[in-house]
Design a protein around this nucleic acid. Structure first.
Lengths: 179, 179
DNA sequence: GTTAGTGATTGCAATATGCAACCGGTTCCG
DNA sequence: CGGAACCGGTTGCATATTGCAATCACTAAC
């Protein structure tokens, strides 16, 4: 359905249904995975995203999706001189994709099998409830939009990230051990 | 990323991440829209889905997506002799996509503009909270799985469907009036 | 036996994907 | 200065998927 064809981003939506409107932006697998890595992995640079991609995104696809997401208003690209690395940041609209991500993670946990170690993050988010989601949103606002965080409240996503990175590390070392 | 290529559904997932697992099934725009029409529009037959598609799905794409969704375990196809219409029903896994749908609708409402009349359903779902979502899930279980519904509780989705169909009707008649 | 309805399939042009090589620019280090 | 490493991409090309319209084999009703 030619989701967001990058050259023709001005195309009128296929319908005014909000679900369709969301799907026209988020309905591409790679768009979702790129957002996930920026959100949860705090990968802010092109090369970081390529290198850290669990699913192995190609550079042309990544370039295309980043452009689309910037044009769609989910990301901003900090202007940097050529040859110098440019940081991508989530906008508020991008941050608000988190609940969709949580819902997807929930569904994936319940209805697909997968590497148990990579499931930790989704399990934490599922079990943390709306409060944890709110806390993560607040921290994303601080990281990406510069909105100061209440120093009283614990940094929820630190916990998430630590759990996730420990799991990835475990996976990596066990792969090394296998080979 | 060759989401679910129908002939090669046995392909191993790209990663064990639950979000990726969900995206490999739900990451196709049409898959989501087909599920939406079955869930909210109660369209159970091939021709109904073609005719009622707000976005104009092509028959080959619909056939392909229905197969994929059956294989992925989100839908069942009632066996019917050739030439006789076959009913598609949601499985429990399919019904559980509702929260993802609600999250997408929320996001679409907040961050994209669209036909105001088609937004009614998403607004109702958003404002109804988890209780309404639960009630809709219960009614989907009755409709698609034959799980009896507590007759005491009101039929939440009747209300939703009525509001939605009124909006579509309004749209249709106004289009007719325009032409 | 014709007609309408069922769930699709087919052919074809246009588009998107996956992959690897490559590019111009910058920065670091000696 | 010279070279190497890193920066965000771009390019070419084979293959896969999409969108669209026509068509298919079959069933049921008249």
């Amino acid at each position: 359905m030619q989701v967001l064809s990058e050259e023709r981003m001005d195309t009128a939506p296929r319908s005014g249904c909000p679900i369709n409107a969301a799907v026209e932006v988020l309905g591409d697998p790679w768009a979702m995975l790129v957002l996930r890595d920026i959100m949860f992995g705090n990968r802010r640079y092109f090369r970081e995203l390529v290198a850290g991609s669990e699913e192995g995104i190609a550079t042309n696809i990544l370039a295309s999706r980043l452009k689309q997401l910037v044009t769609a208003g989910l990301l901003t690209r900090a202007d940097a001189r050529r040859g110098q690395r440019a940081a991508y940041s989530l906008t508020e609209a991008g941050i608000q994709v988190l609940p969709v991500m949580v819902a997807l993670g929930d569904w994936g946990l319940a209805h697909r099998t997968g590497d148990r170690r990579l499931r930790v993050r989704a399990e934490l988010l599922r079990d943390g409830g709306p409060e944890l989601v709110g806390a993560v949103i607040d921290e994303l606002r601080e990281l990406h939009l510069g909105v100061p965080l209440n120093p009283e409240t614990p940094r929820a996503s630190d916990q998430l990230r630590a759990a996730y990175e420990a799991a990835v590390l475990e996976r990596t070392t066990s792969e090394v051990a296998e080979s």
